[in-house]
Design a protein around this nucleic acid. Structure first.
Lengths: 220, 220
DNA sequence: TAGATTGTTAATCGATTAACAATC
DNA sequence: TAGATTGTTAATCGATTAACAATC
């Protein structure tokens, strides 16, 4: 009988889960059948209580004295993140970034399979990158329907992102992984996850500004 | 006389600031001298009170009835994020991802200037990408010192990330923008900001899993 | 049994949101 | 003045952390 499924796993927990996996995998590789929350926590610089909370949230039960069963733990992470059943995706925009993502081997283990790339540049269409076809954007809607692809990875220039996203949604795309700086306005049922370069750089920059201010203060 | 400087601007605020900028810029472009928190908020799907809190945090004062002065607002964002004085950076790893980042024009406006790329592949070294030299990794330490570069953008394969990061820190790098999946162990004074592909994909995937579960439930 | 580790319940912390007085 | 908008103070919410009982 199936577990009722997690009510809802919080976003911070979801974001930490992928980092747990290689730690536990490594432990299994070294012959461990059990792993403690403290062992995971120290490997990642976290508190063990946070690891225990996260594991409780995804429905993994530990055993006092022993810790958590590594195989079950890994399966729970895979189930929660959908790593067990691979989902197809199209990359839109076959520039450097799109090509990098199309060639990233880590995605396969993370349940994502890039099937093909799409681009409007006739110089690129018809060629391949990392063994994957670059197709004309005009073929996109038809292929989304025929292959029942749900995910689009958006790596087009910022200026056209909004328009391309609209076309993708019209073609039936249900989730967009947005690598552009554009704020996409899409219907409520469409999932948009933004890979926010500017936000990440902002955090880095502000920390550098603070660091520099600290140094100047200690100079004076 | 200089303002005392923000005590500390929270991370969520820092991450939102870059999205405010183009909205305000656009308003100025259209001739507005003042912009209200509500105007910014609706453009981004936020609450106006959150915008006011953020602006207060970076030291912008508004005027009842009028809103916030657009020029001052933009300057405050630029100051807080260090967009006014451009910082040089080296990209380590001249693959597709590194090349994409080296060619991203948005960085200039965000205070980041990619000076050169480094790679170990002799096929790549000596060539250029987006007008920027790809140099042998052996030249990295010397150039960091001579050019006083503080930021390294890490786009090497995951397996070598740890080792390369160590070399970068030894060479004097003070901040690493980490695009690899590796957890970097660096001295406390070195800033590491991770661009976490796996975390972002995890959020996307879990939302897809939830969406699918919803659909199946409504089927039954 | 003794002791290590989980898991529960409560406390703390930080950020968001609400209410409303202050202000131009 | 009247009214729109800021900015302050308090309430809420969610996540992290702490304390400790339960358990093997």
């Amino acid at each position: 009988m199936e577990r009722n499924g997690p009510v809802s796993v919080s976003r911070p927990t979801i974001r930490r889960l992928p980092t747990y996996f290689p730690i536990v995998e490594q432990a299994r590789h070294e012959g461990q059948d059990w792993i403690s929350s403290a062992q995971i926590a120290t490997a990642l610089g976290l508190e063990s209580i946070q690891v225990r909370k996260d594991l409780a949230a995804i429905g993994v039960a530990g055993q006092p004295r022993l810790g958590y069963p590594v195989t079950q733990l890994m399966q729970a992470v895979e189930r929660c993140l959908g790593w067990n059943n691979v989902t197809d995706a199209f990359v839109i925009g076959a520039g450097h970034l799109g090509s990098a993502l199309a060639g990233y081997r880590g995605f396969e283990r993370h349940g994502l399979n890039v099937v093909a790339l799409f681009d409007n540049d006739p110089e690129k269409t018809g060629t391949k990158v990392h063994g994957k076809d670059i197709l004309a954007m005009s073929k996109f809607p038809d292929l989304v329907r025929r292959m029942r692809v749900r995910i689009a990875i958006l790596t087009v220039p910022d200026e056209v992102a909004e328009k391309v996203a609209r076309r993708a949604v019209e073609a039936g795309i249900q989730a967009i992984w947005n690598f552009t700086a554009a704020q996409l306005a899409v219907p409520g049922e469409v999932i948009v996850e933004r890979m926010d370069l500017a936000a990440s750089l902002a955090v880095l920059s502000s920390r550098l500004v603070a660091q520099r201010a600290r140094l100047e203060r200690s100079d004076a």
